[in-house]
Simulated scan of single mutants.
Amino acid sequence: MTTKEKIKLLADEYADRLKLAIDGRVTEMLADDVSHYLIYRVLGVAEKEGRLIDVYQNKGRFLYKYAGSFLEAATKLCFKEAFPDSASLRVPNTRGQRPRTFEIDCLVGNEALEIKWKDATTDGDHITKEHTRIQVISDAGHKPIRIMFYYPHRAQAIRIQETLETLYEGIGGEYYYGEAAWEYVLKKTKIDLKSTLEEIATSRIPRQAQ
Rank of each mutant, 00 (worst) to 15 (best):
N58F: 04
R61W: 02
R61T: 15
F62Q: 04
F62L: 05
F62T: 02
F62E: 10
K65H: 11
K65Q: 14
K65L: 09
Y66M: 10
A67H: 07
S69E: 15
L71K: 02
L71N: 02
E72I: 01
E72G: 02
A73T: 10
A74T: 12
T75D: 07
T75W: 04
L77P: 09
C78R: 13
F79I: 08
F83Q: 09
F83G: 13
F83K: 10
F83V: 09
F83D: 07
F83N: 07
P84N: 13
P84L: 09
P84F: 12
D85I: 06
S86G: 13
A87G: 12
A87V: 08
S88N: 10
S88K: 14
L89M: 12
V91Y: 07
N93L: 07
N93K: 09
T94A: 11
T94L: 14
R95D: 06
R95V: 08
G96E: 12
G96Q: 07
G96W: 05
G96S: 05
G96L: 08
Q97M: 07
R98M: 11
P99N: 15
R100H: 04
R100Q: 13
F102K: 01
D105I: 05
C106G: 05
L107Y: 01
L107E: 01
V108I: 13
V108H: 02
V108C: 09
G109I: 08
E111Y: 04
E111C: 06
A112N: 06
A112Y: 03
L113Y: 15
I115V: 13
I115K: 08
I115L: 11
K116F: 06
K116W: 03
W117P: 00
W117A: 11
W117H: 05
W117V: 11
K118R: 15
D119E: 13
A120H: 14
A120S: 15
T121M: 11
T122E: 12
D123A: 14
G124S: 09
T128M: 10
K129H: 11
H131S: 10
H131M: 12
R133I: 00
I134D: 01
I134A: 01
I134E: 01
Q135A: 08
Q135E: 15
V136F: 00
V136C: 03
S138T: 10
S138W: 00
D139R: 00
G141C: 03
H142K: 00
K143F: 00
P144K: 00
I145H: 08
I145V: 15
M148L: 02
F149K: 06
F149C: 07
P152Q: 03
P152M: 03
H153R: 15
R154P: 05
A155I: 13
A155E: 14
Q156W: 00
A157Y: 01
I158R: 03
I158Q: 07
I158S: 06
R159C: 08
R159S: 14
R159Y: 05
I160Y: 02
Q161G: 07
Q161R: 15
Q161F: 09
T163A: 11
T163H: 07
L164W: 02
E165K: 15
T166Q: 14
T166H: 08
L167S: 13
Y168W: 06
Y168I: 07
E169V: 09
G170N: 14
G170P: 07
G170Q: 10
G172R: 06
G172F: 06
G173D: 01
Y175S: 03
Y175R: 03
Y176L: 03
Y177E: 06
Y177G: 02
Y177W: 01
G178A: 10
A180E: 11
A181M: 04
E183T: 00
E183K: 15
